[in-house]
Amino acid sequence: MDPYKVLGVDPSASDEEVKKAYKQLAKKYHPDMNIGAENIAEIERKFKDIQNAYNTIMDQRERGSQPGYGQGYGQQGYGGYGGQTYGNPFGGFDPFGGAFGGYGQQQSQPEHPIEIQAAINYINARRFAEARNVLDSYTGPKDAFWYYLSALAHQGMGNNIKAKEHAEKAAHMEPDNFQYHHLVQQLNGRGHAYTQRQTTYHTVNLCTGNWCIDMLILNALCNCCCCGRGFC
């Protein structure tokens, strides 16, 4: 069912509006609010439906704004947000098939060494730790494509630092490759979104004042050092 219909909002609604709509329905259908209700089974089902609808919308929006951005990281129980499963782990586009790729998942790409093909398969199956093992034990030359795959495996495992490093290395080794640059952009996307939002909140102010220490003499010291001016 259309998740927007479940929450009763328009697909053009802002994130904030979706959150508000969810909250309103959650208050109505939360099982704790309906203790003793006759139709409790139905209410519980409805509550699950609105939670699933909310997560589905957030997943879709994330993939929409950052196509190809893998969700979740790894198999250690962290994988994916919200319990939705998708056929394509990479969301908006499949890095190895379709729109941008010549890198097939099918057997029709015999040019990859068997270990590299195995890494591709593992990444597509979201089995990132296994992809990592295969990539790390690969003894052939580490070309740009190896670094690209390595970046994807690291990203899937939550290794954001190495994911970025390896994606940049791949893009540096093959500056003409669109796919590698695209991955670098995606990996930097969250940072950009963060710094953009940060401008609303952040001014450099070197003293918070700890409430319980406020009571003490430190308060006086604190007031001296705290001039509240912004540096940037």
Partner: peptide
């Protein structure tokens, strides 16, 4: 970049 993942 690490905090950005958390904020997202």
């Amino acid at each position: 970049s690490t905090l950005a993942e958390a904020a997202a």
